[in-house]
Computed example of a mutant assay.
Amino acid sequence: MLATVLGKAVLLAGLLSVVGAGPALAVINGEVSRDRDGLRASVVRIESTRGEICSGTLIGPDLVLTAAHCVMHRAGYSVVAVDRNFRQQRILAIAASMHPDFVPGTTPEDQPGIDLALIKLERPLGADFQPLDPRGSAIATGEAVDIAGFGVVAENRRGTAGTLRSAQLVSIGSLEVANRVTMVTDRRRLAETTGSGACLGDSGGPILRGGRGGYQVVGVVSWSSGAMRQNARARTACGGFTAVTPTGEHAGWIAARSAELARIQPGDVMPAGRGNRSDWMAKPGRR
C-alpha cells in the first residue's frame, strides 16, 4: 500500500488544484504536549505584527530554525517559548536570514528555492530550553517521524492555535513540484482520507527523528494539502500530505549562517555572508 500511495504522491502536483494546498499556516489529530522535559523545551511559536503564526525549532540558545515564507514579510516578529512551568516567554526577533535560493513573494507550494530561514533572538533562552541538532540525515521512505507545531486542530477552528501538539507520521518519499520536498502523511490513512498532519500555524515546525532526550531535526514543514478523498463541501488543505524541506541536505548552510548570526548583536548590520538579499534586521526599539 505504501508504494501505491507513493505513486499517488508523484501525481500530487496535478492533484493540488483538486484537493487544495497551501502553507501549513496545528498538528491535526495530534496530542497536546504536556511533558516538562518534552518538546516544549525545543519547539517555539513565531508571531508577526501582521497577525501570522508559524512554528520553529531552537537550534541554539538564541537561534530558531523555521520556514523562510514565515519571515519574508516586512513586519515585526517575536518568538514565544514555553518554560518548565508552562509559562510563556516572548522574545523579540532582531534578525532573520532566508536561504539564498529562496524566492520571496511566492507561495510555499510554488517555491522554486529552499524554504528555510534562521531567526536571531534579542537574547538567549535559559536553562529551561534545549536546542536541537538540525543536521539530521535524509528521511528514508517508510521511516516514522514526528511532527510538532502550534497550529490549529482544523482550518475552521482558528481559536485552537497556540497550543503545542505532536503526532507521528510516515515518509512516503520525495516529490518534485517547484522544488524537491519530502512528503509525510498519517501512517494509517496514508492521505486517502483526512488524518494527522500539518495545518494552519505549523509552517516552519520540525519533523523529528528519535524521542525524548534524543530528538533530531530532519526536516522543516513547508506546506500541506488535503486528503485525496474529501467532502466536496468541506475541502481542507490539512490532514493529507505534509511537504517537508529536509534539513540534512542544507546542513552546511544552516551551520555557516548560524555561526554568522550568532555573532551579531542588537543594532549591528546584518552580515552579508551566506544570506538572502531579503534578509532583515529589526530597527532598534521595534516590537
Rank of each mutant, 00 (worst) to 15 (best):
L116N: 03
W280H: 13
V181H: 13
R263Q: 14
Q89K: 15
R235A: 15
N276L: 05
A282T: 06
D133L: 05
V177C: 02
L58N: 12
G30H: 00
L65V: 02
G126R: 10
P266D: 02
E109P: 06
T194P: 01
A75L: 01
P284N: 03
G151C: 04
P206W: 10
P206L: 00
S278C: 11
V10G: 07
Q89A: 15
G267T: 10
R277W: 03
G201A: 10
E109Y: 15
T160H: 08
R50V: 01
G201C: 04
L6A: 09
S33G: 00
V19I: 15
E47Q: 12
A154E: 15
K8Q: 13
W223M: 14
T160Q: 00
A127I: 10
G252V: 13
T49F: 05
A154L: 00
C54V: 11
M72P: 03
R157L: 11
V71G: 09
T242V: 01
M72G: 12
F150A: 09
S222V: 07
I147E: 06
V153I: 14
A256W: 01
L12N: 14
T236R: 14
D37L: 03
L25W: 15
A262P: 11
I46D: 03
M270K: 02
G205V: 05
Y77S: 03
G142M: 09
A93H: 11
I264R: 10
G195W: 01
R229W: 08
L11K: 10
Q216G: 12
T194I: 03
G20N: 14
P134V: 06
V218Q: 07
A191G: 11
N276Y: 13
R50A: 11
G205E: 00
S225G: 02
I59S: 10
